[in-house]
């Protein structure tokens, strides 16, 4: 693969990666969000695959495929399953409790998008020393990873549905993984495995907790969880 093509493809993947994060922020339908999230997983998986192909490191390609399976397949599946379970209850009672929609985020969509823009700028500013340390096409794209981390965190802060928060958390994690690949072609395998396993477990835990929350509170609106306070 030529240097130019590699750079263009990498930039494309990174662009799609960032765009997916912004769309997650934009959309309100949870099903759509999960779909976008899955697409982002694909873009994320593309990064190590591209790197592996470019540097002829097939292990990276394998890791990339693994990542793709996890991030674009398994995790969206889990979230979607939880969503189905929730909306199933909704259909059974025939009421629209808004479980499948992020009807009223704490910061409205327009402001969220503007904030995302600001966060992206911040990510570029912050990533300057990272880029300067070793200016290659990969590191040039590092701000994207950081921006997705920040956007993911922002989603976590402003979204009210439990599943939106899960997606926010996963965005955050995607961003970190992207950063890891872009910066240093990924962390050692044992760590990578451990991290992936932990993320998977975390999502499982959150899914279980979402179900329990639904049982206990009758809703998955996180803003209703205010019984514990001072």
């Amino acid at each position: 693969m030529s240097e130019g093509l590699f750079t263009q493809l990498l930039d494309l993947a990174c662009g799609a990666f960032l765009l997916a994060a912004v769309i997650v922020l934009w959309r309100r339908e949870l099903t759509a969000i999960v779909r976008v999230f899955a697409l982002q997983g694909v873009a994320l998986a593309a990064i190590p695959v591209l790197l592996g192909v470019h540097e002829r490191r097939w292990d990276l390609v394998v890791v990339g495929v693994g990542i793709g399976v996890l991030r674009a397949g398994l995790l969206p599946y889990l979230v979607r399953r939880a969503l189905t379970a929730l909306t199933a209850g909704q259909q059974r009672y025939g009421t629209d409790t808004g479980e499948s929609r992020e009807t009223q985020p704490l910061v409205n969509v327009a402001a969220s998008l503007l904030t995302a823009a600001a966060l992206t700028l911040l990510a570029y500013a912050v990533a300057r020393p990272l880029v300067e340390l070793d200016p290659t096409p990969e590191t040039q794209a590092l701000p994207v990873g950081l921006a997705v981390v920040l956007i993911g965190f922002f989603t976590l802060v402003t979204r009210r549905r439990a599943l939106s928060q899960v997606v926010g958390f996963l965005l955050l994690d995607n961003g970190i993984t992207a950063t890891a690949f872009l910066a240093a072609a990924g962390v050692p395998l044992i760590v990578e495995l451990g991290v992936s396993f932990d993320v998977l477990l975390a999502v499982l835990v959150l899914q279980i907790l979402t179900t329990r929350m639904r049982e206990a509170f009758g809703t998955t609106d996180i803003d209703d969880l205010r019984e514990l306070h001072d």
Partner: peptide
């Protein structure tokens, strides 16, 4: 007491603001 009002968004917001 308002600092620990119970909203997880608020709590995450602390972290987000400080991070930014």
């Amino acid at each position: 007491r308002r600092l620990a009002g119970g909203s997880v968004h608020l709590y995450l917001g602390y972290g987000f603001v400080v991070l930014v």
